[in-house]
Nucleic acid binder design. Structure first.
Lengths: 160, 160
DNA sequence: CGGCGGGATGATACCAGGTCTCATCCGCCG
DNA sequence: CGGCGGATGAGACCTGGTATCATCCCGCCG
C-alpha cells in the first residue's frame, strides 16, 4: 500500500491545474475540487451535487457540470462509461495517456498505463486500413479488497 | 474488398437469431432488423425511429428501444459510446468477443478480434490485483475510403 | 473611491436518450 | 372459436446534460 497521495494533495493539484490554465479558482470550483478529490473512485455529477449541497447550500447543477467540464478539458478528470451505460467521472492523472480499471463493487478506480496497447492499436489500424485517432479501453472487475471481503462474507449461494 | 455479406443476409441473420432464442419475429422486429442491417455503421435509436416511420407510420419509440434491447441481449447489436458521449448502436457478430473500430467521419464500423488484447488485459489485472470481468476497447479513426476522399477534396487549411 | 467589463453563477427551461406503465391488440395454440 | 401471453403504442416520467438569461462578483482602471 502506498497512499502517498492524499485527498488534500489532489485538491491542491486540481486547483493548481485550474490556475495554471488561467481559470479562476473560485469557491465553487474549489468545492468541486475538494469533492472530486475526496472520492476514491468514480462519481456522478448528481452525487457531487448532493454532497456539495450538504456543505454549501447554494451550488447550482449547471455549475457542477461546468466545473466538471472544465476539469475534463484539463484532463484532471475523465468521463467514464460504465458497463450499465451510465456516465461517471473519475479523478485522474493529466500527464500521461492512460486508461481506467474500475472496481464494479466499490467503484474504486486505478489508472492503467497505456503500455503495449498503443502498439496493438496501431497494428489493428494498419490491418484495417484505418487511421486511428483515439482509443478508449475500459476495464471492469473487482479489486483485491472487495474480493477478500466477499470471500470473508460470502453472499447467498456463492459458496456452493 | 469482400462485400459478401449483404444487408439482406444480415436481416435474415438477425431474424434467425431472434427465432433461435425463442422470440417472435414480429413485423416490428423484422422492420428493426431490416433497418439495422441496412446501415453500414452505427446508428442511434432516434435515427431508426425516423427511418422506420418513413416506411411504416406506426412504430413506437418504446418498441424500437425494446427491439434494440433484445438484439443487444442476443449480441447481434452492441451499444457504443461515441467519443462525444453520445450513444449509438452497431450491428455486429454475436459469435466471438470483439471490439469496434469506427470511422468518425462516415460512421462505418468494423469488428476487431480481441486477439492479443485478452492477454494484455489479463496481465493488467494481475499487476493491479484486480479480477477483471469485462473490458471494452473502442477505436475511433478514419477509414481508408474517407481518408482518400478527404485527400481528393481537402478541406481549408489542411494541404498547408 | 466609483464605475465598468468579463467571467462565474443559479434558476430554469429545455433536450435527448432511455425506462415504465397501462390499456389495447394480436397472433398462436388448444 | 376462445383465451392467454407476449408485443405494441402513447405518453408520462426520469436522468444526464446543455442553453439561456439575468444577476452577481471581482479585479482593474480611471
Amino acid at each position: 500500500m502506498r497512499p502517498s497521495i492524499t485527498a488534500d494533495d489532489s485538491t491542491k493539484r486540481i486547483i493548481r491545474a485550474l490556475e495554471r490554465a488561467g481559470y479562476q479558482a473560485t469557491p465553487n470550483r474549489r468545492l468541486v475540487a475538494r469533492l472530486v478529490a475526496s472520492t476514491g473512485g468514480h462519481f456522478t455529477a448528481a452525487e457531487l451535487l448532493e454532497r456539495g449541497r450538504q456543505e454549501r447550500v447554494n451550488i447550482g447543477r449547471a455549475t457542477i457540470f461546468r466545473a466538471l467540464d472544465l476539469l475534463a478539458s484539463l484532463r484532471v478528470v475523465e468521463r467514464l462509461d460504465l458497463p450499465t451505460g451510465a456516465h461517471a467521472y473519475v479523478l485522474c492523472d493529466p500527464d500521461e495517456h492512460h486508461h481506467h480499471l474500475v472496481c464494479s463493487t466499490c467503484g474504486h478506480s486505478v489508472d492503467v498505463a497505456d503500455g503495449e496497447l498503443a502498439r496493438l492499436v496501431d497494428e489493428i489500424g494498419r490491418r484495417a486500413g484505418y487511421r486511428i485517432d483515439a482509443h478508449r479501453l475500459e476495464l471492469f472487475g473487482m479489486c483485491s479488497a472487495c474480493a477478500s471481503e466477499q470471500a470473508a462474507v460470502p453472499g447467498p449461494g456463492s459458496p456452493a
